[in-house]
Design a protein around this nucleic acid. Structure first.
Lengths: 210, 210
DNA sequence: CGACACATGTAACACGTTACATGATTTG
DNA sequence: CAAATCATGTAACGTGTTACATGTGTCG
């Protein structure tokens, strides 16, 4: 869904051809989400079929026509779609499946899984990702003030921080549950070493629930 | 990807048939992510084809065999897959495309979009989602201590809080950019009212990236 | 010349959703 | 009996990824 609307939004500015759409998309999101070129063409075909875009008559001969570049432009219906996209908020009522949350939920359910070790490994991986983002931010911040790309990076940083906080939260919850269930729990639940790394931002532990 | 592995993980506990797998999955995630039954069957077919599950000979006649229930159990390869899933962290190196981030990134790029209003609308929607989650938490917390379902809810809460913080962050960044670009910017960038609602949890604004 | 960026497409497949068809068992 | 729940499946379609085929223009 997001790719389809993103292409339409890009065409709002001016008619473009497939390859250019990919380039523009990646430029605006800082190559955070590399966009497959093939998908651009198939999506454009569908969009044309649905009457949201149409081949632009374009300045034939003006540009070096080179090898059959096919520019597309928005139709009126297409413009409506873009406007609607920008006015209706993204629905978080039915959130997308998050593989990490599913994994943890099943890990605490299925017997024989070392949840403590799993949480630790994930925490390390997420911390690494977070550091990569902040490093990118520093580099991007020096070069220029590209607002869009900078905001996308910030969203990744905020999400990574929340993820790490949640992992820490999970650890205390799981440990507490194991303690209440009889101390030695299943396998290595108590054997795992304590974090040893300092908390992410602020400890924040004020127990959101109830 | 997540569904496939989730089904395998559920079969780790004991052999199950399709309908039961859906029920168990939703029970563990508190119906946060409703799982289509049809998909369970098609996924099981693929898993059997790939040698990760196999029909369980099962206690014929023990259970009321009713209407041809087809139980599946893990193969050795399947058990390896589950173990690998639980030992390797979820890769956030190439984060999934987030429609909201894409939308905002394009909104600040494409001319003629009222970014301030867009941010406000999204903030309201996200706040509503957050309130729904906390309400659910309170209700679930009373009934019983289902750890998995509780952790999933917490992950949604943490993510929603981060999203709202990010939206606020976007607003200040966009406003600052508009001011630096010449104050009256494009359209209503300065006309939008200030948040007026108090910050989510703690203000927290200490600018994450060093 | 050879490698690389530009440019357009197709094929195959995985994953996900919606909708439909079919039938047994349980329960009001 | 009628409706709901349990249970299994198929068809169609949208979306996304990987890989391949094809050709031009540029630059070292």
């Amino acid at each position: 869904m997001s790719v389809k609307l993103a292409l339409l939004a890009l065409l709002e500015t001016e008619p473009m051809y497939g390859y250019q759409l990919r380039t523009e998309f990646e430029a605006r999101t800082g190559s955070t989400w590399p966009l497959n070129v093939g998908q651009v063409y198939t999506t454009l075909t569908r969009l044309e079929r649905d009457g949201l875009v149409e081949p632009a008559p374009g300045a034939e001969g003006a540009e070096a026509d080179g090898q059959s570049q096919q520019r597309y432009r928005l139709t009126d219906r297409g413009r409506e779609e873009v406007a609607a996209w920008f006015t209706t908020p993204v629905a978080r009522t039915q959130p997308a499946r998050d593989e990490l949350a599913i994994k943890i939920a099943l890990a605490v359910t299925v017997p024989g899984v070392d949840v403590g070790a799993l949480l630790q490994r994930q925490r390390t991986a997420s911390m690494t990702a977070l550091q990569d983002y902040t490093r990118l931010k520093r580099r991007a911040g020096d070069t220029d003030g590209d607002l869009a790309w900078s905001l996308v990076l910030d969203s990744l940083v905020f999400a990574a921080e929340a993820e790490i906080r949640w992992l820490d939260h999970c650890e205390t919850r799981v440990r507490r549950a194991a303690r209440e269930r009889g101390e030695r729990g299943d396998s290595a639940a108590a054997t795992t070493p304590q974090p040893a790394t300092q908390p992410v931002e602020q400890p924040t532990e004020q127990e959101a629930g109830r």
